[in-house]
């Protein structure tokens, strides 16, 4: 069975790029367009092995999503990667405190994305 990844981003183009790359690499992908929807998808889908989330999103931002996910028993130890911009050193710290496993620095290309995923969820 292929591993399922949840990608949460309010930007359709980034979501499309992430999804396409992951599917091509053999992963199953589920999408959500903000934190609130991401949390719902995560709750209703039991088999998610990794979450990739943007930070700046309407309704519920990435940090809140991470904090909420970590309170759910099923997501206590799930790797969660956040998308962040280079200058955001404080954001990385905030993210780690919220429970993020690691980060992917924007802008990124498909190879970098897969490399970071490999780091926290090796095949």
């Amino acid at each position: 069975m292929s591993k399922t990844i949840l990608t949460v981003d309010d930007s359709a183009s980034i979501r499309q790029m992430v999804s396409f790359t992951l599917k091509q690499a053999g992963y199953t992908v589920v999408e959500a367009d903000d934190g609130a929807n991401g949390l719902n998808v995560a709750k209703s889908n039991g088999g998610i092995g990794l979450v990739i989330t943007d930070l700046n999103m309407p309704n519920m931002n990435g940090l809140e999503l991470i904090r909420n996910l970590r309170t759910l028993p099923a997501y206590k130890f799930t790797p969660i990667l956040m998308l962040t911009t280079e200058s955001d050193d404080s954001k990385k710290m905030e993210g780690k405190q919220a429970g993020a496993t690691g980060w992917i620095v924007k802008p990124f290309n498909p190879e970098q994305l897969l490399k970071v995923i490999q780091k926290v969820m090796p095949v």
């Binding site: 970590r70 206590k76 130890f77 799930t78 790797p79 969660i80 780690k96 429970g99 993020a100 496993t101 690691g102 780091k119 926290v120 969820m121 090796p122």
Partner: peptide
């Protein structure tokens, strides 16, 4: 460490 989703074995 495991509570941020990091697996030391990885």
């Amino acid at each position: 460490l495991p509570q941020t989703g990091s697996d030391p074995l990885n």
